[in-house]
Structures are given as structure tokens and as C-alpha cells.
Simulated assay, not measured.
Amino acid sequence: MVAVGECGLDFYRADKVQDYKRQKKLFWNQVKFALACDKPIMIHARDAYEELLEILESAKREYGARLRGNAHFFTGNAAIAKRFFDIGFTISFTGVITFTKDYDEVIKAAPLDMIMSETDAPYVTPVPYRGKRNEPSFVKEVVKSMAEIRGEDEERLYDRLVRLMGNSKTLTGELAIYEIGYLILPSIPEDRLSDVVGAIGKVIAKEGGVEINAEAPFKWPLAYPMSKTIGASRYVLTDAYLGWIKFEVDRAKAPVIKAGVEKIEQVLRFLLVKAPRETTFTFAKAKAAAIQTFPMELPEDAVKENVIN
């Protein structure tokens, strides 16, 4: 068993006043079953997002990361989508987006790692197959529309969605979000920093990691001198380039990524930790706050590199 569902609330034909208590009780039982089995939930909601999210948000407060899942055939607005994202649920879009613009703004604003594509076959056949029976293979038209709406390259989007959707680990909890904060040697020319960051990214991608967010490196004084030995030389440093990358990857691959980054000579230090999906801290914000709170002039030797042979 990969997941529990579809399950949820549906008031499209039912009388909400008369049927809410019954549906709520049944849905709660399904949520508890999913939690007991440690499986994600595939959500069905029709004319019921508000009531359903109240239940899921309450369950999230009680059960935390154990509660996870996907909102199938999403037809809500941006505010509803954000509430799903806030509790760690993804949302998926069908062929409907190929013939209506009702969900364009949601698709544009949604984090790429939180959206999926589907067909809901045999229904809602996408353009250009309208009038025919829907087929799972038509999902490529959904991805094509998502790329057009987001203004992204179709092949790149397809590749990233396949990594996230085709791998059931996204929902089953085998994937985790990590953040790697790194220090790059200050002697690296600024026009070569992207090469070092790219090398870190390649280590992550090689193990199937998908980047969620990142902050470009910038130079900043270190709290204390650090050393790095390269070949026969030992470097004592008082500043470095700071940056970070947030990504999602199979938990088992984290040690492999750590070992790979350790081999990159231009990296002075780094820290690999589990992280929340939403980014609230950046070095740039911290730098601005520090400068505002503690105005200072850097000594001339603060940006120099000392070499001890």
C-alpha cells in the first residue's frame, strides 16, 4: 500500500448541513487509518476545501510530519493552495488547465516542488484530445500547459516533475528537505563562484536531489579564523563567501552528498542539516540587520588570505 485514498469531503451533490457530520466522522477515521499505517493521504475535495482544511490543519497540529499527502484534482484558489502547502501537502492539476485559465495564477505562484500533474482519466480529457476518452499518457499535455503558464522550459519542468511525482518517496516520507550552508574560499574570483556552487549542485543532483531554493554566495568576515589545507599549503582565512542551497532528496542519500561536498577543495566549511520547506532566513537579511545594528568598518586584512607553507 502506497497511500490511503481518495478520501475527503464532497458536498457537490450532498446537503452540507445534513451530511457534514457524517462525512467528517468518516474522513477522520480515514485520516487516523493513514496515520496508523504511516501512509500519505490522497485527498478528494469538492465544494469542501474550507471544511476539509480545518480537519487537516487540526490533525497537523496534533500529529506533525506524520500527516502528509496530496490534494488530487485541485480546483481551489491561491489562498487554499497555500494552506495545503503550509501543512506539507502537495496539490495536483489535471487536463482542465489546458482549456481554462482559472488556475493560472495558482500554478504560477506555487513552489515547483509542491505541485504535480495528473489526468483523472477517463475524465476531463486535455486539449488537443477533447471529445476522446482520457488516457494516462495524455498527462504530457498537462505538463506542457504547466510549463507555458509558468514560463518555463517544458523539458526542464517535465524532468523535475518526474523526479517528484514518479517517485512515490515524495509522499511516503522517504524524502526529506535539507539545507547545505557553505563557505567558499575568498581567493576564488567572483566570476568563478558559480563554478563552485555548480559543483555542489552536481553532487546533490547526482543523488537525485531536487533544488527548492538557494542564496547566491557573498563575501563576509568570519567570526574566527579558519584554516584549510590544500596540497602542501595551509591557508588561514578571516573571511569567506557564504551561501546555501535547500533541496529535497532521499534520506539515505544525505551521507553520500555530505561525502561528495567534502571533496570539493574550494569549499572551506559546510553544514548539512534538515530544514523546513519554507525559507524564512537568508544570509542577506542577517547581513543587513547586522550592519544596521552594529555599523562597522572592516580592517584591511579582514579580506586577505594568509598562506602558511
Rank of each mutant, 00 (worst) to 15 (best):
residue 2 V to G: 10
residue 3 A to H: 11
residue 13 R to C: 09
residue 18 Q to E: 11
residue 18 Q to F: 06
residue 24 K to W: 06
residue 27 F to H: 04
residue 31 V to E: 03
residue 43 I to A: 03
residue 49 Y to E: 12
residue 50 E to M: 09
residue 54 E to W: 06
residue 57 E to I: 10
residue 62 E to W: 05
residue 64 G to S: 07
residue 65 A to I: 07
residue 66 R to Y: 10
residue 68 R to H: 05
residue 73 F to E: 05
residue 73 F to R: 08
residue 74 F to H: 08
residue 85 F to A: 10
residue 89 F to L: 12
residue 96 V to S: 02
residue 98 T to R: 02
residue 99 F to A: 08
residue 106 V to W: 11
residue 110 A to L: 14
residue 111 P to W: 14
residue 112 L to V: 13
residue 116 M to R: 11
residue 118 E to D: 13
residue 119 T to D: 08
residue 130 R to N: 12
residue 131 G to A: 15
residue 132 K to F: 13
residue 141 E to P: 07
residue 152 E to G: 09
residue 156 R to H: 00
residue 156 R to W: 03
residue 157 L to K: 01
residue 164 L to S: 06
residue 165 M to R: 07
residue 168 S to R: 05
residue 170 T to V: 05
residue 172 T to N: 11
residue 176 A to Q: 08
residue 179 E to S: 05
residue 180 I to E: 02
residue 190 E to M: 06
residue 201 G to L: 10
residue 201 G to V: 07
residue 203 V to Y: 00
residue 207 E to C: 04
residue 211 E to H: 01
residue 217 P to V: 13
residue 226 M to Q: 15
residue 229 T to F: 13
residue 229 T to H: 13
residue 232 A to C: 07
residue 234 R to W: 11
residue 235 Y to S: 14
residue 236 V to Q: 10
residue 237 L to G: 14
residue 238 T to L: 08
residue 240 A to M: 11
residue 241 Y to E: 10
residue 241 Y to M: 09
residue 242 L to H: 13
residue 242 L to S: 04
residue 243 G to V: 10
residue 249 V to P: 07
residue 255 P to A: 06
residue 261 V to R: 04
residue 262 E to W: 01
residue 262 E to C: 07
residue 265 E to G: 01
residue 268 L to W: 03
residue 269 R to M: 09
residue 282 T to F: 03
residue 286 A to R: 00
residue 287 K to A: 01
residue 290 A to P: 09
residue 292 Q to I: 09
residue 294 F to D: 06
residue 301 D to A: 11
residue 302 A to Y: 04
residue 307 V to L: 09
